[in-house]
Every structure is written in structure tokens, then in C-alpha cells.
Amino acid sequence: MRSPPGRLMLVAGFDWSFISENRDELLAGLGRTLLVSSIAVAGAFVVGLVLGAARAYRIPVVSQLAAAYVEIIRNTPILVQIFFLFFGLPQVGILLDGFTVACLALVVWGGAFNTENFRAGFEAVPHRFREAGAALGFGRFGTFLNVSLPIGGRIALPPSINTYISVVKNSSLLYVIAYPELTTTALNINALTLQTVETFTTLAVTYLVVVWTLSGLIRLLESHLALPEPS
């Protein structure tokens, strides 16, 4: 591509055909990023909800195990966790393929952070609300389902949404196990085309569009689900 001298190289030298030439591959990579992220977000939601409730209501044994799980995951880097799952476990006979490690690592990581989010949410539900639930004839589980979950879940919503966005961003770390998500795909394209500026600009813009769209959508959902008044 002829770039006129004396102009800003980034603007004039940007080879726009890069995008059309590599569109299919990039979209496939983006698709895998979104696929793994959605599985991980769903998994992290379930893990966080169950273990968060177990922590908040001090269910014996489960609560202590959940506490240990949360501390271990939150205090070790996710990249080392991925290395451990993918390169460490085969030594003891547990061989997992890239996709499994990808989902597992993100669910385990997101689940730990979400357990804390939901625990804090459930603990923020005033005690008198649960007493009111009991007075209405609900059992322990009924009270949880009808009183604590709708209120505590909504208190836990903003922090858990930040966790989900982090899960999406952390999926880029799957590059180290060569799982072909967006970042891996982009680096492969870069290795073939050597169009470094184009590759990384496209990569960065794609991530920003995904993350900004998600946080925009989520803010919308948040205002929709917000508690009518502070309890």
C-alpha cells in the first residue's frame, strides 16, 4: 500500500483491506470468545448463587469449603490457574482439552468472585425481611426463594456484572493454551500477514466494542432491575 509521506502513518498507512481479508477468521475467533464467555458467565452465576447462599446462611461444611475455595482462587493469578489446569494436571493423569480448560478456568475464577458478590448481597438483606417471610408462613427455603433471592440478588447485581465483564476480558488469557479465541486468532493472523498495526488495532477495537456494549447494556438492565427504594 502506498502511504503518502509526511502524513500520519497510522491514518494513511492503515490497510483497510486487512479487515475484509481476515474477516471470517476474526469473526470465528470472536465467536469462540463469546461462546466460552457465555458458558463461563452462566457457570459463574450458578456457582456464585449456590455457594454465596451457603456462605451467607452458614451451611456447615459447605460454607467452610466455599470460603477456602474463594480465598485460594482470589489470591492466585488466573494465568497460573490456567497453566496448572492445562500443563500441571496431565502429570497426575488428568488430561483436559483446550475447550474444557478454557471453560473450567473461567467458571472457577468467576465463580469464586461471584460467591463473594452473592454472599455480600444476601447478607445485606435486612433480618426483619426474613422474619416477615417466616411470619407469612414460608419455610427457610421458601423465605430464601421469595424474599432473600429477589432482594439480595439485586443488591449483588452490579458487582457480579463487573465479574462477568472481567470474565470476558480474562478469556484473552486462553491465548497461553492456544485456544483459538479472539486474541489467539489475531496473533496467528499477525504471524502470517505481519500487518502488526492493523492486527492489534482491530483486536483492541473489537474488545472495546464488546466490553463497552456489554457495560452499556448492563447499565440499562441494572436501572431496570434496581430496587425501588434503598432497604
Partner: peptide, 14 residues
């Protein structure tokens, strides 16, 4: 908004 890995790639490669 950017994953830190992507930021570091941009600085190191781009």
C-alpha cells in the same frame, strides 16, 4: 476496557 494482555501486546508488538 482492554484485557491487560492485549494492552501489553500492543505495547510490545504494535
Amino acid at each position: 476496557g482492554l484485557p491487560i494482555l492485549v494492552t501489553i501486546f500492543i505495547i510490545f508488538f504494535a
